[in-house]
Design a protein around this nucleic acid. Sequence first.
DNA 1: CTCTGTTTCTATTGACCTATAGAGTCCGCG
DNA 2: CGCGGACTCTATAGGTCAATAGAAACAGAG
Lengths: 234, 234
Amino acid sequence: MPSPFANTTSPEGNISRMESAVSDKPLTTGKRREPYEQKRERAIRAAATVFAEKGYHGATTKDIAERLGIRQGSLYYYFRSKEEALEEVCILALRDYVGRMENITHSNKTFADKILDVVHSHLNSYRDDNEALKVHNDQRLYLPEERRERIKRDGSHYRKMLEDLFRAEIAKGAIPQNIDAQFAAQSVIGLCNSWGALLVRDDDIDMERLAERCSDLILNGCCYRPDHTFQSQP
Amino acid sequence: MPSPFANTTSPEGNISRMESAVSDKPLTTGKRREPYEQKRERAIRAAATVFAEKGYHGATTKDIAERLGIRQGSLYYYFRSKEEALEEVCILALRDYVGRMENITHSNKTFADKILDVVHSHLNSYRDDNEALKVHNDQRLYLPEERRERIKRDGSHYRKMLEDLFRAEIAKGAIPQNIDAQFAAQSVIGLCNSWGALLVRDDDIDMERLAERCSDLILNGCCYRPDHTFQSQP
DNA sequence: CTCTGTTTCTATTGACCTATAGAGTCCGCG
DNA sequence: CGCGGACTCTATAGGTCAATAGAAACAGAG
């Protein structure tokens, strides 16, 4: 039996699969079998759901397999270990999350609109990746140090981009000097995470409204007078 | 061997112990043995530490016992089950936390000062009960419904008190009508929890300063101009 | 010192879980 | 058709863990 884990680092899958994906020969007829990477991602999402509900240690590989409709042993065709499954869930959670932040920081909207976008994007991650981001937040520390390096790097990158957003605004003089960019960024992340955790498995919440409220809280606090509302200069 | 779990509901301990505590006969000589309830609380705190570090499912009863300096089997003199230990940790976490909130709401400080006190008290819980509150936040959902009733009640009570704080200020007209008290209260709690989680095991953070910044963020946002700073009327 | 209740210990049971090995099945392709 | 790789299955090894039972150690009161 050929191992599907020929290459150890890339999350893109095994070599033979990659070659066949690159191969110019079109893969014949209509009803194709579901590609490896596609089913593997389904496996990752299944793991995310189970980890979110029961926690990493509380979840069993049997739980994950059942949700996928296969047997416990078969799961190891897609993961080398339960730990790897958790790592993949965390990586998946950060993938689009970080990408969207990059787009936001490079846009030329006003500061206030960027903050709204950040909050909106963050909260939306709890819809799209659903359980994955929750798992990243709550369970990633159960991974051993070596396995957390990439995850830590991505997380720090995200935080730093948000900090720089505040720093730039402070440098422009549009925000008081005494604001601490690190504090502000961490607060935005924390606020979004705590609301996001409540969002999971509660589909009837008005996201737009919530995002507006969150960014408004961050910019103006909950006690501002309308005529004092912050407006950043473009 | 008489079970120390004669009464099933009270967290105050077994009947014979309670009677001896009530007994008027003074309990003789100098070096007293550590009372049951006192050691039990040490056991709860040991459980809190271990649960905080490894998670409920990741922690073993052996871990808890070792931290307490006894053997795994002996732990069952203080807990009927691992689950009960988690429940007790959560109850302990909320005990003083809720009590302090009651004091704050009944004080006659200004709204702004009350919010500062709330934040200060919340963050301080992460120092005093240290791991317990973190365990409550992260692990309580692993308890079965029946065991969570009291915990849910206490948590809701806390949140409601905070909501009422905002509602009263809105009614006074000191805060804009369009502020949602539920949103504001939940945001305060979420912000404090996310900062609190970072506080655990990081002793060199200036708590006073952090509390001020958090309450300032909530009241005025991070982008206020000094002359716009919110001041509630007494 | 002896008696009694308390606390801790050792030893074990039975359940459960991860990971692996190797056989079996399916399907597209030549 | 029948080969070969991809995928899934069964079965099990090897280990860990929660919880219990019963013996032992301990401490204070009479």
